[in-house]
Write a protein that binds this DNA or RNA. Structure first.
Length: 313
DNA sequence: TCAATTTGACCGAG
DNA sequence: CTCGGTCAAATTGA
């Protein structure tokens, strides 16, 4: 039911965007650009909500840009055959909460990450299948729903357990959703997250789930592009590694898209929604679609406390 | 040569 | 059986 409604909303938003696009070809009203952007955000928001309702969970994005590079052409039987058995339960079993989620215009946050895996995810535009492969061949745009996995470059050297997942937005490829797990324990966590920056172009929406924070209280913040730095800096998670170079890069980053990713959180509370009503998850989604509150949250740096949301349970 | 990336296989959960 | 997360051999590029 909720899924149906959201699907309907998404179609409407898509239609609106199409109309605006058509209109924008004839008139160059700057306001129209903003409106179009807003429409795109709506679509993206709905997509994520749908994904969450379908049990997909996380905020995904896809980090890799571009089609498969075709770098590797090893025989399929190579490798793995004599691989020693090993436990890979880590995150699944531990049910580790994401430390924070950021939406940014580039998957690059300036930190040192080593890519260790990539997956096409379920309910994706181009699911993992032969058909998907065919599509990839004929399409110059890589699947927006491919998720890439990164771990700290110094995982083995310093035992740093920080990881992150990057996924590209389906409807707005310029937006990457980066989910961080754990905090850097290597020697690189000096400067907190790249979110910080006096005038930096930082991720406009950051959700902290409390993991790794001092008070354990999850938070969400949306920061404006136009230098609302003092506010945003208060929402910064305490321990993420970042360097001055990173911050500089952040300053150079193009404007991040602001949108709700409430529906895209892999762990609680969002992802557990199967009740049709009264669920905090759906409440969050409803909040997302409540234009007044949604717009407020997008542009006025609304802080959403997930603790309060969980109380509704 | 070595570090980083790619990508199929592996593993546990559901 | 499917799926998401991870591993690690093969490969690429500096």
């Amino acid at each position: 039911m909720a899924s149906e409604l959201m699907e309907r909303g998404r179609k409407s938003a898509a239609a609106l965007e199409a109309l605006l696009q058509t209109a924008s070809t004839t008139a160059s009203n700057p306001a129209q650009h903003d409106i179009r952007e807003l429409a795109e955000k709506i679509i993206c928001c709905l997509d994520r909500a749908l994904a969450a309702l379908h049990g997909e969970g996380a905020d995904n994005d896809d980090a890799t840009s571009g089609c498969p590079s075709g770098k590797r052409r090893s025989p399929p039987d190579a490798g793995a055959q004599a691989r020693p058995k090993r436990s890979r339960r880590s995150r699944v079993i531990g049910a580790e909460m994401p430390t924070r989620v950021e939406k940014r215009s580039t998957p690059d946050d300036g930190l040192l990450w080593r890519k260790y895996g990539q997956k096409d995810i379920l309910n994706s535009k181009y699911p993992r299948s032969a058909a998907a492969d065919e599509r990839l061949k004929s399409c110059s745009i890589i699947s927006n729903w491919r998720r890439t996995y990164f771990r700290c470059t110094y995982k083995h050297d310093n035992g740093c357990k920080a990881t992150r997942q990057v996924q590209q937005s389906e409807d707005d490829p310029s937006v990457y959703v980066v989910t961080y797990f754990g905090e850097h324990t290597c020697g690189m966590h000096a400067a907190a997250t790249p979110t910080v920056g006096e005038h930096g172009k930082s991720p406009q929406l950051v959700i902290n789930f409390g993991a790794g924070t001092s008070n354990g209280s999850p938070w969400l913040s949306a920061t404006g592009n136009d230098d609302a730095g003092s506010n945003s800096s208060q929402q910064v998670p305490p321990a993420a590694c970042s360097t001055e170079e990173e911050q500089r890069e952040q300053k150079e980053m193009s404007v991040c898209q602001v949108e709700s990713i409430l529906a895209s959180q892999p762990a609680e509370p969002i992802s557990s929604a199967d009740d049709s009503c009264a669920s905090p998850d759906l409440d969050a989604l409803v909040h997302c679609f409540d234009w007044d509150s949604c717009v407020d949250s997008l542009f006025d740096m609304e802080l959403i406390n997930f603790d309060e949301a969980s109380l509704l349970q």
